[in-house]
Amino acid sequence: MYSTTYHRPATVADAVKLLKKADDGKLLAGGQTLIPAMKTRLAAPSDVVDLRHIKELKGIKVSGKNVTIGAGTTHAEVASNEKLMKVCHSMCELASHIGDPHVRHMGTIGGSVANNDPAADYPAAMVALGATIHTNKREIAAEKFFTGLFETALKDDEVVTAVSFTAPAKCGYEKFRNPASRYAMTGVFVAKGKDGVRVAVTGAGDDGVFRSKEIEAALSKKFDASALDGVQVSSRNLMSDIHASAEYRANLVVVMARRATTAANG
């Protein structure tokens, strides 16, 4: 790791100030990606501004079907929140399978969303749930927020403060893990809500999370795993690497969608 200057602000406003002052500042929101990258000298921020001690970023609010999760909420907190479990069990389930216990007790939903790792779990949930990403400046629809591999609509001095969504009638998430890293090699979140069926795929797209129109069309006809029998998704625009070819990922998209749908139907 290169030497860096660590800051621990108490408010979002202070965090933004520190970030603006820094030569090459980075926000730290759990550090489960940034710290390993710094340790291997792939990232060298001059300043690290830690968001984990900002009270206003913490907590989960559930009001009826409306859910707001503070950006500083850890995966472990999301996984174990009883109110959330009642209205959107799949979100808890998803959070409970991110990384390992260390990661889940350090990593935060805001950090994951802002980093937009193409193999992260939360982006699929956000897009499928039609969630809104709240920042210190504005509100952005999830689909417009995730713009590419590790790319988001965030401006330089913009901080994710919360995510919100309306819990759908049914939803489910299944992922196939990369054998080595255990990140999602293909993860599919299916949701059936007021606006119909939305299906988002993570870990597979060569430009990050995306909605699968083929799967949505099939599940819109009948929200049942059997609706996906014989459905194929194109391997175009899917990633190919030593662990999984685009064709294999295309297969996994359908298989995971089928399993997620079964889970959603409980």
């Binding site: 054998p179 080595a180 890293s181 030593i242 662990h243």
Partner: peptide
């Protein structure tokens, strides 16, 4: 499985992100 990129000779499995223990 240890993988080298055949053209560049770079080790593709140089951490536990890609080498499966």
């Amino acid at each position: 499985g240890c993988h080298y990129d055949p053209s560049s000779g770079q080790l593709l499995t140089a951490s536990y992100m890609d080498y499966t223990m």
